[in-house]
């Protein structure tokens, strides 16, 4: 039996809304340590990795490790029926072929349940290696979203260059060229405006803005986002979900041919 009760139910809605355009169907893996998802996007250029720890749930029970294949589009439709402040409980029998979502309003005066058919999705689950990145930039998630949106009106790709002075996002196209530089400001009076750069060595990589924009759909999940880069390796775009875990995206850089 798998049963998990999430008081901040809208967190699940935000997670699914953040990944449903990148990944169509995916396996959610449940184990005693938590609820995870790892999937390549449909074009195998980016990887999504979700991890929600069991201790972040009000109640979490997983008698046997199980993998629940779901259409993320259908899951998003079901979660749209949940109130923003609803408590969400997921339930699935060990050998069942459905998963039930129960939504309870805070005043417990409205309870609804939705049953979703599970799918058989074969996906090789590979470990994500720890990488010692050349640079990790942490900036407000809204700032990152705005940079990606602004630059995607200029070009299809962005060069992200991290140096000790700051991180520069450059793009060019028919319209012209654009450079946006964000400097480290760990002394910003408001925490949510802080930008920090952990630099081991300068690094500059080129990425497709389409994917970076898609990752920014996770903005509602966290105040900040971290971009970790190393030469010729996928960038890790990391949204920390407070007290629960993280939603991470990996995107391969464009290798200059």
């Amino acid at each position: 039996m798998f049963e998990a009760r999430l008081v901040q139910g809208n967190l699940l809605k935000k997670v699914v809304d953040a990944v449903k355009d990148l990944v169509t169907d995916a396996n959610f893996d449940c184990s005693s340590s938590g609820f995870t998802l790892q999937a390549m996007d449909n074009s195998h250029v980016s990887l999504v990795s979700l991890s929600l720890r069991s201790d972040g749930f009000e109640h979490f029970r997983c008698d046997r490790n199980m993998s629940m294949g779901m259409s993320l589009g259908n899951l998003a439709k079901i979660l749209k029926c949940a109130g923003n402040d609803d408590i969400v409980t997921m339930k699935a029998a060990d050998d069942g072929d459905t998963v039930t979502f129960m939504f309870e309003s805070p005043k417990e005066d409205r309870v609804s349940d939705f049953e979703l058919k599970l799918m058989d999705i074969d996906s090789e689950h590979l470990g994500i290696p720890d990488t010692d990145y050349a640079a990790t930039v942490t900036l407000p998630a809204a700032e990152y979203q705005r940079i990606c949106r602004d630059l995607s009106s200029i070009g299809d790709t962005v060069v992200i260059s991290a140096t000790k002075d700051g991180v520069k996002f450059s793009s060019s196209g028919d319209v012209g060229t654009a450079n946006i530089t964000v400097r480290q400001n760990t002394t910003a009076d408001k925490k949510e405006e802080q930008v920090s750069i952990d630099l081991k060595e300068p690094v500059a990589l080129t990425f497709a803005l389409r994917y970076l924009n898609s990752f920014a759909k996770a903005t509602p999940l966290a105040s900040h986002v971290s971009l970790s880069m190393a030469r010729d390796l996928p960038v890790m775009v990391d949204y920390q979900i407070s007290d629960m875990g993280h939603l991470r995206f990996y995107l391969a850089p464009k290798i200059e041919d």
Binding site: S43, H44, L126, G127, I128, P129, P234, Y250
Partner: peptide, 14 residues
């Protein structure tokens, strides 16, 4: 080894 496996998944990008 694990890193190779991981990178291989991004095969469409390289």
């Amino acid at each position: 080894k694990q890193a190779q496996e991981f990178l291989k998944r991004f095969y469409n990008a390289y």
